[in-house]
Design a protein around this nucleic acid. Sequence first.
DNA 1: CTGCATGTTCAAGCGCACTTGAGGTCAAGC
DNA 2: GCTTGACCTCAAGTGCGCTTGAACATGCAG
Lengths: 136, 136
Amino acid sequence: MFDIDISELSQRSGVKASALRFYEEKGLIVSTGRRGLKRLFAPETAERLSLIALGRACGFTLDEIADLLDGPDIDRARLRAQIAQLDRRIEQLTRMREGLRHAADCKVPILTDCPRFRRIVKAAGHHRRRRRAEPV
Amino acid sequence: MFDIDISELSQRSGVKASALRFYEEKGLIVSTGRRGLKRLFAPETAERLSLIALGRACGFTLDEIADLLDGPDIDRARLRAQIAQLDRRIEQLTRMREGLRHAADCKVPILTDCPRFRRIVKAAGHHRRRRRAEPV
DNA sequence: CTGCATGTTCAAGCGCACTTGAGGTCAAGC
DNA sequence: GCTTGACCTCAAGTGCGCTTGAACATGCAG
């Protein structure tokens, strides 16, 4: 296939052109050259963008994704570390969901009086926070 | 119990004083008054802060938490809506974790050639993004 | 040759959840 | 009375992931 321009890549990938330029600046994607001023991209860049989207959806930062993707293939060791992170995150969210579920159905009139809920709330308080993530 | 000052509340809750002022400005917590310039808080405010921490840990924004908490008790209907959101999020993360897990163990030398992985990646691409969340 | 759509650069802005810093105030202890 | 230190206000800054805007350039159609 021939190289495509930024709006084509944008349409294929669902990523805005401004974001594509931003990604290129960050080194997450590369353009193969220019026609005049205009960037050209290899069509496979769209797949790389899906990969990036996957990482973003998992809550990874662009820098983390860049680490995973730099090199000829995905860095499996790093990937495993990220999966471990994701595991912990899912576990935490699941625990809290159970707590919230109980809370929503709890018969105690004033929820903050429910002892089970109070336990969950306390547990949440004693947890370290991590990164910010998940775009709009 | 008597009202406590901001540093006391900060220690009890693990939330920095600057954040407490910020939360008050946002209406998430209230101070009961002042001694001189210094804010005073009811000791129960610490529990409210745990509640806020719980919401944050679930990935809710401060505004969403404010909605849940405004009123004499937690708004159960809103809570159920937030739980549904959380459900979807957990489901999505879980699906992606399975994909990543497979990826990490996949025998195909160039991971991006693995058909199973490619399916997962594609699925992630066609997903709408939501909010940013999860502090440092 | 001209017009215009579609690109380009670079700097600044945004949303969220805070943090930091400068400069001020006040209660208590010496 | 004076210093100290904890607290105050208000404005500005931070980090992430982009978006927006102004000013400019280029390829192609008519």
